[in-house]
Simulated scan of single mutants.
Amino acid sequence: MSEFQIYLETGLHHVLDIDAYDHVLFLIALTVPYTFKDWKRLLLLVSIFTIGHTLALILSVFGIVMIKASLVEFLIPITILVTAAFHLFTAGKTAKSDNINVVGFITLFFGLIHGLGFSNYFKSILPGNPSEKLVPLLEFALGIEIAQLIVVLAALIVSYIVQTFFRFNKRDYALVVSAFVIGVVIPMILGSEIWK
């Protein structure tokens, strides 16, 4: 197996790991107000996340930014909560009226925070000095991007099925899914190590 394939698969597994579902929750919360016709906006948002995640890993690998793991683990569900709450309160509005700046900033912030959360593990699996870690880091980022697109595609398919065959309107679907994500993420926030 080539190094490229190893780091690509590590990126894929990082997002698609069922035991680390925070990433998937964020993508579901992010995707909920959109449909297939909004694919350019979704691609932009997914890429913004990947850029933030990769930037955080680069800053960490080069020792520029260090952050306490318990704080990162607390901030990850907070960003999911903010995204889901934003879409809960803006449910029923068309995606074109959404302010891409707000959602884009939240997405970039989540990418930065999540990248910092993964940075210690990433540094431990990569041997050598920081400059030797740049290419594997980009290969890993490609895996993340592909995995995120898989999750977004699955979320869009579910949304289409629910809205088309079960006759859920877009607003109700956004309300239910956003509320579900909030219900899952609140226990993550309350169970955070930061409270101990």
Score class of each variant (00 low, 15 high):
Y121A: 06
L75H: 09
E139Y: 12
V46P: 01
L45Y: 06
K133Y: 12
I113K: 03
L27E: 06
K40D: 15
V185K: 07
S2A: 04
A179G: 15
P33K: 12
D38T: 02
V162F: 15
L81G: 08
D172L: 15
T90M: 10
V158Y: 13
S70R: 15
L137V: 10
H53E: 12
G191P: 08
L12Q: 05
Y121K: 05
V72H: 12
V176E: 06
L190I: 08
P77M: 09
K93P: 01
L71S: 14
G92A: 02
T94R: 09
L12F: 02
I67A: 15
L88E: 02
I67W: 11
I18N: 01
L142R: 04
S2Y: 00
I18A: 02
V15H: 02
R41I: 14
I194S: 07
F86D: 12
I28Y: 13
V65P: 11
E132Y: 09
S47Y: 00
H87W: 07
Y21H: 02
L59Q: 12
M1F: 07
W195L: 07
A29C: 11
P136F: 03
L30G: 14
I125A: 08
G115I: 05
W39A: 07
S2C: 03
V135A: 13
K123M: 14
K123L: 15
M66C: 06
I113G: 11
L156F: 01
K133C: 14
P33A: 12
L12E: 05
L59K: 13
F105V: 13
I157H: 00
F26V: 06
K93F: 08
